[in-house]
Structure formats: structure tokens, C-alpha cells
Design a protein around this nucleic acid. Structure first.
Lengths: 173, 173
DNA sequence: CTCCGAATAATACAATTGTATTATTTCGTT
DNA sequence: AACGAAATAATACAATTGTATTATTCGGAG
């Protein structure tokens, strides 16, 4: 957040301090708005993905890879997300950073896979939801912290490996 | 980092500005030292765990649960860790926050489990290391972000579930 | 065209904060 | 006891920053 001063934001957007203040009377308002914007965009991206009509295993992989920071843009987005999160935590703001919709997306995905028989029948669906959710965010965290080690190829390998381990043979053949 | 001002730290430690400055001539020095301290303590805790002499499955569970924020203290430590991480990223400091030794610990753990036959033979050990590492940090992240949902019970259930899924039947009977 | 409010700009103000300076105290050594 | 260096304290200074104030410009409705 070091650079997210009102003056910097004003300059970068080509406005003066007064002009910017006309729309956002306080810095917190400005930051809240920005975070809402990021969340809206992410939600829209996720929604689009969930409406794809392709084979279930490929679709699952595609969705999961879209959730992960597999390119510079998403990596930067994640950087921002973490910065905001830390800021809100330490500033005691009441802003709720949660609910990015990823959990709900993963839940729908796995339930539909279970329904269609793509999920191995002996698995506990509830726990698989939590496990996949944690795994995805863990990979995201590692990609964010150590991009060299957890690069794109590694991410694909890991996600594919996990999905294979919970799917029936027929689902990805 | 909002409250980590030189003045606050001086006051909380019962020193004056000048006294504190006698030991740390700059704020960055002070923060670097603090982070090193946190890392040292974590490393010591991890080292102790790795020397335990108990059955391999119980030992693995014990170690993994120790790595996770299963109590207020470790949760607070994680909060600090994230705050520092974000600070260092945005301040352009050259401090290297990486290498907490967790990856090395998990690698040793899984390799010894593979050696002793506790790991299911059909699994890819390299990928299982990365998967478990990501899963642990993902659970940690979720516990940090949403303590209500990912509480102690949930953490135990998830970790146990995953370890069972990669261990042979004999390993945890 | 005129007028009025929105939009923008420039400047000011107070608070915080990192760092520097200077003076004073403490304490072990000779 | 005396000296000197380390330790501590108090104060000062400059920079940054959020916010407030005031003035000016713009653009459309009447």
C-alpha cells in the first residue's frame, strides 16, 4: 500500500487532489471502491467460466487454472489482493474482504462431478471441496511467494495430478 | 504494519526514541531483526518436531498440525508474517522472506514415509510433496482468512483425510 | 445569454513519522 | 576517585500525507 496515497492516485488518474476528492471524500472510500471493483471483475470472470459447455474434466481443469495466477496480470492482481487484505486487517476497517465466490464455484463443480459419476464414489464430497479449495489457494500462495519454483508448468502438473486422483478413469479418458 | 512505528515500538519496549535508535539506527534494521527472530523461532520449533520418535503416521499428523495456525498464538504469528511479507514487497526492500524450512521438512517427511512403505506405492513422491506443501499452506491461509469456517476441528479432519488418502492401510492402523 | 451547481484546481493545515542532534546519565575500568 | 564509552533521554527537523478550504472553470437548463 506504500504507493497508494491520495496524491499518487490523483496524479496517475490525471486528476487534481480536489477533483479526486470530489468523487471520493475520503481515502477509505477510494480504497473500498477499488477493492469492490477488483472483486466484481473476479466474480464476472468466474461466472463466465462456470457457464462453459465442455467435457467436465477439461472444464474443471480450465476453471481451476483460471483461478490461479498463471500470468503476470493475475499475479499482479493477487499482489494487490494481499496488500489490501493486510491493509484492512491492520487498519481496523470494517470492510469485508471475504466472499470471492471461489468456494461456491468449487462446490458446484465437485457436486456436478459427483452427480455425473466423474468423482470416485468412495470419496467424501464435503471434504474434497475443502481440500480442493485449500489446495488451489495454497498453490496460488506459493506461486505468489516463489514464482520461480512454482511456475506455469508446475501449476498445471499439480492441478492435473490432483484432479486425476479424485476422478474416475473414464472422466479424463 | 500500521502500528509498527518507531515510536510505538520504543514505548512498548519501555525505551525512548534515542535509546531504541542506539540499537537499531534505522527502522528497516529493526524490522529485519524482528522478522529474523520470528523465522528463527519457527525454524527451532520445526526442528524439534522433526526429531520426535513416534509412529510415522502420528508423527506426520503432529508435525503438520503444528505447522498450521491451530491456536491464537500461531494465528497471530501468521498475521504478522503476512503483514511483514506485504510490507517488504511494497517497500522494495531486498529482505528475503522465503525459506522457512517447511518445504524441506515436508520433503523429508514424505521421503521417509515412502522409504518405510507408508506411502502408497503408486503415487508420485515429488508431486505429493508439492501437493501436501500447497495444501498445508492453503489450509493455513483459509484458517487465517476465515477462522470461523476453518476451525481447529475442520483442520484436523482435513489433514487426517488427506494423509489417509496417500498412506497405505497399515500405516495408520 | 445568464445563472447555478457540478467539476476542478491550488493552496493550506494539522498530524504523523523517520531520522538527526545534542545533552545527560550510567557503569565498568584504570 | 576519575575518565570515557556506552546507553538513554529530550528535542528538533524535514518530509509525507490525509483532509479542509477557497477560488476558478465548465456546461447545460431556463
Amino acid at each position: 500500500m506504500k504507493g497508494a496515497t491520495v496524491r499518487n492516485i490523483a496524479q496517475e488518474s490525471g486528476l487534481s487532489l480536489g477533483a479526486l476528492r470530489h468523487y471520493f471524500s475520503t481515502q477509505d472510500e477510494l480504497l473500498d471502491f477499488s477493492m469492490d471493483l477488483v472483486k466484481e471483475r473476479a466474480a464476472a470472470r468466474i461466472y463466465e467460466l462456470s457457464r462453459l459447455e465442455i467435457p467436465i474434466f477439461q472444464k474443471a481443469l480450465k476453471i481451476l487454472l483460471e483461478l490461479l495466477p498463471t500470468d503476470k496480470d493475475k499475479l499482479a492482481e493477487m499482489e494487490v489482493w494481499f496488500a489490501f487484505n493486510t491493509h484492512y486487517r491492520s487498519s481496523g476497517s470494517s470492510y469485508n474482504i471475504l466472499n470471492d465466490g471461489i468456494l461456491a464455484l468449487i462446490e458446484r463443480m465437485l457436486r456436478s462431478m459427483k452427480e455425473s459419476g466423474a468423482l470416485r464414489p468412495e470419496l467424501d464430497c464435503e471434504l474434497e471441496i475443502e481440500r480442493l479449495y485449500a489446495l488451489i489457494d495454497g498453490i496460488a500462495l506459493h506461486a505468489y511467494l516463489d514464482t520461480k519454483r512454482v511456475d506455469y508448468e508446475q501449476i498445471v502438473k499439480l492441478v492435473t495430478y490432483h484432479m486425476r486422483s479424485i476422478c474416475t478413469e473414464e472422466a479424463f479418458s
